[in-house]
Nucleic acid binder design. Structure first.
Lengths: 338, 338
DNA sequence: TTGTAAGCGTTATCAC
DNA sequence: GTGATAACGCTTACAA
């Protein structure tokens, strides 16, 4: 087991000073051809690699970025992560990832942990609990220390930093308009609690589309499901006790579940009821019928977030924070009439 | 923007020495109550936190573990990752994650990057290309430097280290036996290239089950699909030109695709053809019909891998490497006859 | 052309 | 009870 070799060892071995070795390995002009050759050869032989930690301490940067997301087993987030990872990798950054599990406490803990020198900046999407409590002190703290943060998807106006979001309201508006265009008039919204900024924005787009089309806006046609729990009962009841011919769902799972319930009740999709979901994930592509959906372009979001962050890390720009808006794309499949 | 405060600053401010501050903050008995109180109060006020990087350099450990997986947008891997993250978090470790994208080169690069002091150990699942080339020098190198590595799922006998795998052969055997038990005799296998150890193991279990039941083993009933590309044509041809009444697929997507093709050809699932897939992912639960599948217990795999790794990091054990075998569970849904 | 020394933030050893 | 010093591995003025 040959441990990693250090400058000091090379220096001792070759009977030169540490700084000579350091310079030689950087091909410095200061050092003679001979010495450089000798040192470089030796270094190559022993496969010398500078120690990242020592470099970080010296340079006061880690070339790491911290990503904190609510859930990793989740198509949208992994997709964003892929975008981050790819861009960061190209720029020579590594990614440390922490999962908040939708918990405020874990989000805070993870941020504090990584903020103690482990990363040069953060990319994060707020946990459900954080959005519910509306407490962003941990983020402000980190920002106050001069560590840049980029928020994506689940963001808050209360935090001043760079952000990447979807045009949730507009694209929800579009989606509903499409369904209205195909003759639907009793349109429902299946959503989560309103403290999710994305849900609330989508709801606004939904309502606006209905009103703009002079359709009756009926509060009863909004089903709020508990985030990440079953709620199958609620769905059944909802579709039994209401007359509905089109549904917008704020995520893919809700859509799949609702389609399932409705089809079991003997209705045809899309003839009797059409569906549009959010998140163009794997489920949408393989459901029966295939689900029309709003693609959120997670990879692009991730890439954009990483770009904003690295920009700020490297160029220590001024305080005019940017918000990049990614345009969703409505992908029509078999759950809507084309 | 108040930067993080350091020991040195506290020392200067309070007119004591750095070492006194350090000790005081560790509540050392050496320091007087008074001094400690003063220093601790000050530290709390300025929210002092020790710098992780400096600690790493000093202690020669980073409390980071590196995870390298072929793909992040993939249910099984994210599931394993969640297990790793949870266990590691509990043990005070952070996780750095790199994606090899099924590329040998990226796998090597990522390992080298992180091996330069950034992590205390690795958990990794081999990329497709690495398995194909059968080149594991990068891993042996890292092991040679005394950095522990745990391989999971996609492993190789050529690397001596701790491993976590599924009982692929046995559970594939089980799955086929179940289909045989329900009267099926023309059983097909849909798989990937054989250099994937998991596919090859599952194929062995498949063959053994067929032979043990005294059924004819027909090479033609094995469809090898290109990993991660379409192959829809191949699937159609395969099911058109062969008489098949049951199918074992080495992953979920293959199963869903095949079910779809077969159903479009007018066959009923499971009456005419039954299906069992691997990876109890989200697709299986929501497909039509719901897919029977082998749960790989990714989370448990991840947790086990993390445990093996951290054990080795902290206890620098001897060279008797362990291989933990996770037992898959056959989950019967509607794509098989119960 | 090479070497010395200071510094990054921390801790541990030893001296006062 | 407190402080100076060295060390972790590396870089970079500055001396020699």
């Amino acid at each position: 087991m040959k441990k990693r070799v250090t400058l000091k060892q090379i220096a001792r071995e070759l009977e030169v000073s540490v700084s000579t070795v350091s310079k030689a390995l950087k091909n410095s002009e200061e050092i003679s051809r001979d010495t450089k050759d000798k040192i470089q050869a030796f270094a190559k032989l022993y496969n010398y690699r500078p120690n990242n930690i020592a470099l970080s301490l010296k340079n006061k940067n880690t070339k790491n970025i911290g990503v904190i997301i609510p859930d990793i087993v989740h198509h949208f987030f992994t997709t964003v992560f892929r975008g981050i990872e790819q861009y960061a990798g190209k720029k020579g950054y590594n990614v440390m990832i922490c999962v908040s599990d939708e918990s405020f406490e874990k989000e805070v803990l993870n941020m504090e942990l990584l903020a103690n020198g482990s990363v040069d900046g953060f990319i994060l999407s707020l946990s459900a609990e954080t959005q519910e409590r509306n407490d962003y002190n941990h983020i402000k703290e980190v920002l106050g220390q001069g560590i840049p943060v980029v928020l994506f998807d689940r963001v808050s106006k209360d935090v001043l930093c760079d952000k990447v979001i979807l045009n949730d309201q507009e694209i929800a508006y579009e989606a509903v308009k499409v369904m209205i265009g195909s003759g639907k008039t009793k349109i429902a919204l299946v959503t989560t609690e309103n403290y999710f900024n994305v849900s609330s924005n989508r709801a606004q787009g939904f309502e606006k589309a209905i009103r703009d089309a002079n359709l009756a806006f009926d509060e009863n046609l909004i089903l709020t499901l508990p985030y990440q729990s079953e709620g199958d009962e609620l769905i059944r009841d909802f579709f039994e006790s209401n007359t509905i011919d089109a549904v917008l769902c704020v995520n893919e799972i809700f859509a799949i579940k609702c389609m399932d319930v409705v089809q079991r009740q003997g209705k045809r999709v899309p003839e009797d009821i059409s569906f549009i979901g959010f998140t163009n994930g794997i489920l949408s592509k393989y459901s029966t019928p295939r689900l029309s959906t709003v693609a959120q372009h997670g990879e692009r979001m991730g890439e954009t977030a990483a770009k904003l962050l690295i920009d700020r890390i490297e160029n220590d720009v001024d305080d005019n924070f940017r918000t990049e808006v990614i345009s969703g794309t409505l992908i029509q499949r078999d759950s809507t009439i084309n």
